[in-house]
Amino acid sequence: MENNEELEEDQEQNDEFEDEETLREIVAPGEVLTEDINNFIPGRGAILNKKRDKIISVIIGLKQIKKNYINVIPLRGFYTPQIGDKVVGIVVDKNPVKYKCDINTKYSGILKIKNTIKRNPTDRMRGNSRESEIPEKLFIGDAIVGKIIAADRLNSPEITLVGKYLGRKTGGIIIQIDSQKVPRIIGRNGSMIKMLKNLTNCNIFVAQNGRIWVKGIDIKHERLLIEGIYKIENEAHTTGLTDRMEVFIKEEIERRGIE
């Protein structure tokens, strides 16, 4: 399946969990990361305290020191939409001008009809629409893969189905994991997802909102893969996960007697 290849490219060298600079130290909100404010700057998930003499964490996560930045890699959290993210959504409502999709955010995603089909402006004339230009009808409950084209703090994010690998999905299973663990499922340079794909012969699409679309040859393969994904989510903060997962999947394939 080509679907996840593009995603893998996006995520290259983006696995913060496996980073050598990420310490295995778990920090809680309010815990002091360092008192040396001359040499360090608070990065992601860290702030200065009121007296500005300490750097403290604001979330539960793993401490990371990168150059002179102190970051905290979150272990739990909610998904905030950002422009360019690919998301798996489910159509929950529709009206003549737009669809509403549940994309695991505080506001539901808006999918306008004009964003469901690619149109060539020079060809478009009244009464001259081509067969290919008729938008595909979506129904409530349909699963889609879309891309976010507009997002801010106040308004509903807008999504589009125009683009490579985007559109309505049929068949397969959608599972939901914590969106903060998505980089771990993909792994460094896509190593984890490639390994899972090769060993279980399944198609996987990992979206940024924590939803994963899985389709395999039969339910046995899918079950094994889903179990593996939940195991990765659970053990995301440990070291050497890719190697351990490879052993786990191979053992399970042998034990369950699946090809």
């Binding site: 809680a28 909100p29 604001v58 979330i59 272990l75 959290g77």
Partner: peptide, 11 residues
């Protein structure tokens, strides 16, 4: 609140 991953200044 801390378990939900919501940013907090402290417990």
């Amino acid at each position: 609140l801390a378990d939900a991953g919501i940013p907090m200044r402290s417990l």
